[in-house]
Structure formats: structure tokens, C-alpha cells
Design a protein around this nucleic acid. Sequence first.
RNA 1: GGCCCUAUCGUCUAGAGGACUAGGACGUUGGGUUCUCAACCCAAAAACCGGGGUUCGAAUCCCCGUAGGGCCA
Length: 478
Amino acid sequence: MKDIRVRIAPSPTGYLHVGTAHTALFNWLFAKHNKGTFILRIEDTDIERSSKEYEENILEGLNWLGLNWDEGPYYQTQRLELYKKYSQKLIDLGLAYYCYCTPEELEERRKIALQEKRAPKYDRKCLNLTSEERAKYEREGRKPAIRLLVPKGKTVFKDIIRGDIEFNNEDIGDFVIMKSDGIPTYNFAVVIDDYTMGISHVIRGEDHISNTPKQIFIYNALSWTPPEFAHLPLLLGPDRSKLSKRHGVTSVSEYKKMGYLPDALVNYLALLGWTPQEGKEVYTREELIELFDLRKVTKNPGIFDITKLEWINTQHIRSLSREKLADLTLPYLKEAKLIKEDSLNWEYYLKVISLLQERLKLLSQIKDYGDYFFLEELDYEKETVKKVIKHPEISKFLRMLKEEWEDLKDFSAHELEKSLKELSEKLNISTGTLIHPVRVALTNKTIGPSLYELIEVLGKEKTLKRIENFIKYLDANF
RNA sequence: GGCCCUAUCGUCUAGAGGACUAGGACGUUGGGUUCUCAACCCAAAAACCGGGGUUCGAAUCCCCGUAGGGCCA
């Protein structure tokens, strides 16, 4: 069996899109599963729309996702000689020809064809030009494009996912392979690249099915054996059209910024169009590689469902070690200016992480759920406070609690709980009457981890100070 | 407009003619647990696009519709 060689070939005309990441992932999984080679090729022939910034974003995104390539990146703009060589060869073989028609002329004839209800395919006007005619066009300063002579008959190819797909060659006009400016068209460059790079399996989106017969014509014309093809289902937005910006966030770097783990995105994307026999939902990347089977990929397109991605992200966050999670969340705290560069107490931070780990859906939520661990002073909000002060004498009770805790030698969750319970019994109130206001006093939130554990981490000094401030706030505002 | 692809709960899917009373997961709803939230546990609602065939038997095979999507121009 020949070597497995696959590729991902993005155009640097936009940020790395989750659809591209999806295709890249399936190629990568296929390569890794089969101990093959994963190649990166940058299709930058659209010079107008390509940019270095987009290219960097794509490389960064693939790296972040861990979809490391074994070869490349190759650049089409550095291979122009190659396309020229093979297009010349096709001319020499009589399987391609120069075409001097201008876009305006073509447009004109296309309109007429449509009016006469004929298929608007190229009419082969330039197929049999005499050398005089060619010379005349050249004198006019026209630069020719090169068109492939499409053969008669039918073209069938086997798709690993979809089975045999058949096309009638008559439906396809002689298409341009080299534009008049010497730049190859997409279909031509792809074939030359895939063949010369020894690609064994072309795994790409379903939107390329209708390009496949054109590409097969080129393989055949050059007497090359085509690779195997597999067309993956597309990613759709909630309205069932191809996933695009108007559906919300589509760029991989945005997901990174929002606090998704690369392993979670990989996990989710892998399950969009493929299900391992296991029937689990959460997989490590090693498991995915181990289980991946291209033949089991589904045919129908999938809607990108961010809710499920979020759930998978939660699962992956939970399976992280404390230390790892601390590393990953730190940048978000720095960005929110909750941590000053060098004043971080790592031991303290790890304790905070322990309390918050199973509550995080996104890494970025660390700043929303844990800000009070790092703030010096809290600015209480009237609406929040109102929710938790149910008892008219709460201010007095809190002062009593504070006094109890001042004397507490062991400021541990267990002791704190014991003393709070004793006090509420003595006052004949429910523990909640004290617990909820204390939570707000310490965190400025009504939600959060177990109060006693939280206090243990926060420490005696901050706890007492915040209760004191809170009492003052109550006295001033209620 | 032409060609091509696709069709199971809201979503991702399992399903290879009898094991289907159509299974799982996310989400949703209800309940339990609890100091709040999350988590956790239990439960519920929820689908084979329609019509014809083939067959003793069809979610599964075939045909025709329909719908969605893609590509080309």
C-alpha cells in the first residue's frame, strides 16, 4: 500500500474558519491514524485578497489546535513555473488551447445563451484558431488564457464517504486552467500540487464535489492517476446555510479568546460528522486518533451548536490538573488587571482554582467568578445586597458573627461552619439568614463556591475587613 | 436556470431488511440533594419528510415527489 499523504490547503483570504479547522482536523486524524503525512499548503494565488496577517492567523490557529503539519507550508505563488510548465505540456499534447476571448465577449455570449435557454458553457470559439487569427489577436495586444479541452463521455469517481458519483461531461464547458495573467485557476493548481506533492487522499468539504470531475479531466490529460477522494459534510449555521460570519463567531482565534480549550474544540469538531463506536462524548486527542475511521463519516451536513461545544469545554476543563488550569486561566486575570505581574501568590492561586474548577465553562470566566479573590475592596451593588438581607436586624447579627470569628483561632472551613451554626441557633434564625449576606459581603455575588471553603482560602484578615465594610454599607444604605 | 449532494427527536447522532415499544448525548422541563450557583442523582417530553413500490417483513433497498444545501455561471 502506498504512503498516506494528505493536505489542508487554506487560502489566506480570511482568519482561520472553524469549517477549515474541521477539514484540517479530519485530514490530520486520518494521517495520524494511518501513520501518514499531513501537509500544509497555502493557496495564495488570489493576490488581491490574500494577506500575511490572515496567513499568520491560520498558522497560529492550526498550531493552537495542535494540528501540527509534517510538511510545508508550501506556497502556490512560489510554484508558478510549475503550472506554466504543465499547461504548456497540455497545449503541446493538443489537450488544451489558447483562448483570446475577453470577459466582456464571454459575458455577452453567456447572456445570449441564457436567453435562448441553452446552458451557458464555453462555445469553443477559440478551439481551432488559425495562426493568422492568433497573430491578429496578439497584435491587438490580447493575452490568451488557456482552456482545457473537455473530453466527451461520462466521468465517475468513487468517494470514500458517498460512493460512486457520476457526471455527464457535456454539462461541463472547456474551463480556463491558466488565466491571461499567467496565474493558474483553482482547479488546475490543485491538481498540479496534489499530484506533485504525492497526495494519496484528497479529503475536503462537500462544496468541492462539483470541482472533482474537472480535476479528474486534468489528471487524465496528463496521464496521472487521480488520488482517492472523500468529501466531508459541510458545517452549517442554525439557519442551515453554510456557516459564515453572520451566524456569529466563526474564527478559531475568537474561540481561543473566549476561553475554549483546543482539546475541546477538537473534540467537538471531530464529533460533527463522525461518531466513534464507543458512544462516549468526551475524548482525548489520542483516543480520537486511535478510533478515527473515514468510512464512518456521515453524509449529511451538521449545524454548529455552540451549546454542546460549551458542555464539552466544561468537561475538558474539569479533567485538567489544577496546575494546568491555573496556567491557562492566568492570562485572563492579567488581562482583566486583577493580578499584578509579579505579586502573585501561586499557592493561593491554586486554592482558588480548586474552588472554581468545576464551575468554569470557559477559561475566561475565571475573572467573573473569582474576581473577589484578587480585589482589595468590593463595591457593593444595592440590587444584589437587597436580595440577601431578609432580616431587619441583620446588621447586628453580622457584627456578632464578626466578633465570634475574631476570636476564632483556627480559621478553617470546619470551625467557621461550627461557629456560624452555633450563632444562628442562639439567635433562633436559619443559617441561610447569615450565610447569604456573608457571601455578598465577601464576594459581592449571590453565587459561588461553598461559603466556608471560600473563607478559608480568602483568609481571616480580608474576611473580617469585608464584613466590617459591609456592615457600614448596610448602616448607610438600608 | 443546469448539475451534484443530502434527508431519524430542537441539535449531534446510533441504526448495514426481522433484536425498534427507534437507543445515546447536548439542550429543555419537572423532581431530589444543597448555604447560593454549578455539579450530581432521578424522571419526562421529543424524531424515522411525503407517496408509491420490492419483500412474509422496510428507518434501512428501488422509484417519484418535496425540502434543504452546494457548485457553476
